[in-house]
Structure formats: structure tokens, C-alpha cells
Amino acid sequence: MNRPHEVAQAILSRCQGATTSSFRDQCRVQVPAEHLLDVLRYVKQEAGFDLLVDITCVDYLHYRDATERFGVVYLLARTESAERLTLRVMLSEPQLELPSAVPLWEGANWMEREVYDMFGISFQGHPDLRRILMPEAFTAHPLRKDYPLQGRGERHNFPVLTRAEA
């Protein structure tokens, strides 16, 4: 029952609007945002995918055939059998909100902060949703595709110390 593709089928039957695909035996499931927490709880508590390897995000702006802007990716693993499962949630502006996975995995805390910092996805119910990499006063989300690589001048925006001021 716990093989990844069986779990994927179980998710499909439990949750309206989910789709599944696989690539080189790696199983991927795409779920709607409103079912995310249910699905995460199911895969952790019933299907035994107990390790949250990573939470990350992809910006599909200008991506061919993409209809939605962001894909938040949950990489899960089952430590008993070393099997893996990829969950993906698609989001578009202005609805960039997801339920936090911290109640299920404490380790989601910093990963969600990173996704928030770099892409501006906000996680509802996160205990401490602050930027983790960029300075607190930074206003942009730099891994978005519409943010210029060289920034908007933030790196040049500091007081200049001359000899007399030192």
C-alpha cells in the first residue's frame, strides 16, 4: 500500500483536483492549495512519509505552457524504505497563501521562511514568518523571475564612509 504510486492513487481518490505524473520512477502529485494540509497529514501519518526533505518554490513566469505563476514543491521521503514523493501546489497572484506545515514537521520552519523570503509566498499559521536570508528591511523577493539579477539598487544604498568620518 505504501509504494509511492499507490500513495499517489490514494491521494487522487481522496482529494478533488489532484493530478499525478511520474518521471523515471519518481512519483509526483499536484494538489490544490485548499487540500494541501489534508494531503500532507495523510502522507505523513498514514502513508509513512515521515521526512520532509525540502520545501522550495519555482517561478513559472514566462515558462512555456504555464498557466499558474508559482509552484511550491514539497519533497518527502519515507525513511523506512527510502522512497520519495514530490508534492506540488500551484499558486497565482494575488492568492499567494498556503497553510504552514510546521504543525506537522518542525523542520518546515526555516524552509518556509526561505520560500517566503525569496518568493513572497506567505504561510498561514507559521509561528515566526520573517525573512531568513535577506535583511529585514528588504522589500523585494529576489528569486522571482521579474526581479532583476542585479537588484533594484539595494546593494548600492549605504552611507559612504570617508576618512574624516571614520
Binding site: 535583511p135 529585514e136 528591511a137 528588504f138 522589500t139 523585494a140 532583476p148 542585479q150 533594484r152 539598487g153 539595494e154 548600492h156 544604498n157 549605504f158 552611507p159
Partner: peptide, 17 residues
Amino acid sequence: ELPIIGRPSAACVRGTY
């Protein structure tokens, strides 16, 4: 002046420090 963007924008970090 910045080469690409012109003058630094208001999206800034000055003031924090």
C-alpha cells in the same frame, strides 16, 4: 547613477542602519 536602473529606488535598505 546606477548603470542599468538609474538612481537607487525607494525599495531600499537605508534607514535601517
